[in-house]
Design a protein around this nucleic acid. Structure first.
Length: 475
RNA sequence: GUCCCCAUCGUCUAGCCCGGUCCAGGACACCGGCCUUUCACGCCGGCAACACCGGUUCAAAUCCGGUUGGGGACGCCA
């Protein structure tokens, strides 16, 4: 066995991500997928996508699509698949027969509610609620409605040499005769995973911590089948603020919700990978860097709390890093959502550049772009009252005249013009800047004045300044 | 109840395997300051942790044992 494991290590790495299509792709699943993907990419191996749809009642087409969409958005491409377990029933039947023939599995006709009663009774008596082995030696043959159970060794110890957690020991006596095939002929999770991982030549099973207790059962099945084990690595779970398993009550858990909230996939990935994995003190990683640096050795053992604030910071960072022209198609949908009409990409790109250091999400970006998008800005009442005062008509007139006469309309010359006007008037630039800002944006907070003017263009700027003057005289 | 896992600032973490260089480093958040036409960004500074008890050792965040706390699993779900 040791020798076989040694040989296996030399094989090309093959990992897989096996979601069950019973809902959207959530944050925890995404991180598991990411770790598997990174591990495969880092080792120049293969990453397989497998849909575990043996729970026919709960699996849906919509979920499959939602999961695939999310994987695609994250950029986690797969090399094989998606495979569907419901299309691989032949494999499970074949392996099940091997177990049956070897006497390592048996038919059982215990009724579900009967089983439940016995479980409750065991629990009440302070015992472990495991299958009591009633049908174990009945020698039952196939009959419709009967399940097949695994004959679990009653003695001995099973060792899981976890890549992340180290060796973990389980007493076989703690385990029970789990169901391998349901009464409807479908394989159960624990059996299907093993058969799939064997037949797909999976070398590394990287999955959530919550599967640790399933692993000894699976190892026992591998052993009963006489095949070598893959390597197992159990990554710690992601917890909510209250340190319990993350769920909807902790806020958004669906990957696609983060897309809708204006997060960049590279930011979500960056955040998720750092939640449980580290590379010294580094916080920001590009995808290529992650592929190069990722390793299971630096995955921590303890569960981590999902922190929105930090995600926001990581997202802000990636927004700043991205070339504005690449951001254009990404913010456009958000702009449209707000009801703004389309603008040329070149214009959008310049506008975006001024806001990159000031926003944390694409949603914030779109909202902050309002004054770049509308024809006439709406004045914030408080801002207008404070800054658009009648005594500013004269300065505004001067600014308008200077801008009209400007030969080269750019940031540098604009700054010179404003400083000149301020000097002549004997006031500080700030005295002029805020009113102009309100005139141009309607609010008191915005990117630098000269960048705004540069983006907006002479026509629009003059129009807005004149409109502000009209407002002042009316006040 | 039983089994399994985990335990460094509020949060994510470095350090732990190979004890001394750690009166514990980085990041988020928070609080000051600088920069400045506003707001951000950026920069500088501050607050803040080795869960507890015992053992081993000249020396323990690091090794060992226990306690406590937290999480997970006990399905004809995955």
């Amino acid at each position: 066995m040791l020798r076989l494991q040694g040989e296996r290590r030399m094989d090309p790495v093959i990992t897989r991500f096996p979601p069950s299509p019973t809902g959207y792709l959530h944050i925890g699943g995404a991180r598991t997928a990411l770790f598997n993907w990174l591990f495969a990419r880092h080792n120049r191996g293969k990453f397989i996508l497998r849909i575990e749809d043996t729970d026919v009642a709960r699996s849906t087409e919509a979920s499959i699509k939602a999961i695939l969409d999310a994987m695609e958005w994250l950029g986690l491409g797969w090399d094989e698949g998606p495979y569907f377990q419901t299309q691989r029933l032949g494999f499970y039947r074949e392996y099940l027969q091997k177990l049956l023939d070897a006497g390592k599995a048996y038919y059982c006709d215990c009724a579900p509610d009967d089983l439940e009663k016995r479980r409750q009774a065991a629990l009440a008596a302070g015992r472990k609620p495991k299958y009591d082995g009633l049908c174990r030696d009945k020698g039952l043959q196939y009959a419709p409605g009967r399940v097949v159970r695994f004959r679990c060794p009653e003695m001995g110890t099973t060792v899981l040499n976890d890549l992340i957690k180290g060796p973990i020991f389980f007493e076989n006596a703690e385990l029970d005769d789990l169901v391998l095939q349901r009464s409807d002929g479908m394989p159960t999770y624990n059996f299907a995973v093993v058969v799939d991982d064997i037949t797909m030549n999976i070398t590394h099973v990287i999955r959530g911590d919550d599967h640790v207790n399933n692993t000894p059962r699976q190892i026992l099945i591998y052993q009963a089948l006489g095949v070598p084990l893959p390597q197992f690595g159990h990554v710690p779970m992601i917890l909510g603020e209250d340190r319990t398993r993350m769920s909807k009550r902790h806020g958004a858990t669906s990957v696609m919700t983060y897309k809708e909230m204006g997060y960049l996939p590279e930011a979500l990935i960056n955040y998720l990978v750092r939640l449980g994995w580290s590379h010294g003190d580094q916080e920001i990683f590009s995808l290529d860097e992650l592929i190069e640096k990722f390793s299971l050795e630096h995955v921590g053992k303890s569960a981590g709390v999902f922190n929105q604030e930090k995600l926001l910071w990581v997202n802000a960072h990636h927004i700043k890093d991205k070339p504005p022209e690449k951001l254009v198609p990404l913010v456009e949908p958000f702009l449209l959502d707000l009801g703004f009409s389309r603008k040329p990409p070149h214009y959008l790109s310049k506008a975006i550049r001024t806001l990159q250091p000031r926003v944390r999400t694409l949603t914030e970006m779109a909202e902050a772009m309002r004054f770049y998008m509308v024809d006439d800005v709406e004045y914030d009442p408080v801002a207008a009252k404070k800054f658009l005062r009648p005594n500013l008509q004269e300065p505004f007139q001067r600014i308008i005249a200077s801008i009209e006469g400007l030969e080269t309309f750019d940031e540098l010359n604009l700054e010179i013009v404003f400083k000149q006007v301020a000097d002549t008037l004997g006031v500080k630039l700030g005295k002029l800047a805020q009113p102009v800002r309100v005139a141009l944006t309607g609010v008191t907070v915005s990117p630098g004045l000269f960048e705004i003017i540069d983006v907006l263009g002479r026509e629009t700027v003059l129009k807005r300044l004149r409109r502000a003057m009209a407002y002042m005289s009316a006040a």
